[in-house]
């Protein structure tokens, strides 16, 4: 695929709809700018559900959890009780039920990769985040290649 090769087929992905059929990904992020950039990159292959708070994220997980193929969680969730790391531990059932806020109780178990996104990925130890149940740490805004690679690695490790 050098410069003499034919160009890659161009494609403008249609706007995401309920009946789109692309793989569903939950994206929990408060930052609008990051969301716009990331969704623009990811919507070529994914249908994104955005949550701006921990409570909203739990509601979407209850509703669409069975259809999700991955979860992207911002580590910093200003205005929420739970941050991305704690939400990851809850989704991986590493927190006792009595220690959970009411809206986070009885969540369905998610058997999908969880990618933690942050503006400062160097501040976190990936080994430590993996111990909490996360699969990868990525810098914002995310791109489709790295997200797909994280999901692919998760599939290959199983």
């Amino acid at each position: 695929m050098t410069a003499s090769r034919p160009p890659a087929p161009g494609w403008t992905p249609p706007p995401a709809t309920e009946a789109d059929g692309r793989a569903l990904v939950l994206y929990v992020d408060v930052d609008d700018q990051s969301w716009r950039t990331s969704s623009q990159r990811l919507r070529r292959a994914y249908r994104l559900l955005r949550a701006e708070s921990d409570r909203e994220a739990c509601e979407l997980i209850r509703t669409y959890g069975d259809d999700m193929v991955a979860v992207l969680l911002d580590i910093d969730l200003p205005g929420s009780v739970l941050d991305g790391i704690l939400l990851t531990r809850i989704l991986r059932r590493k927190v006792p039920a009595q220690a959970l806020p009411p809206f986070a109780r009885n969540l369905p178990s998610l058997d999908v990769p969880i990618v933690l996104v942050t503006e400062r990925p160097e501040s976190y130890s990936e080994v430590e985040l993996r111990r909490y149940g996360g699969d990868r740490v990525m810098a914002k805004p995310v791109d489709i290649g790295r997200v797909t690679l994280a999901v692919t690695e998760w599939h290959l490790r199983r």
Partner: peptide, 21 residues
């Protein structure tokens, strides 16, 4: 070069199919 474009295309191609495909 075209590495970024290739990464996006491969990311799109290797993305998982919907859960109930």
């Amino acid at each position: 070069g075209p590495a970024s474009e290739w990464a996006d295309l491969l990311g799109e191609l290797l993305a998982p199919v919907p859960a109930h495909a």
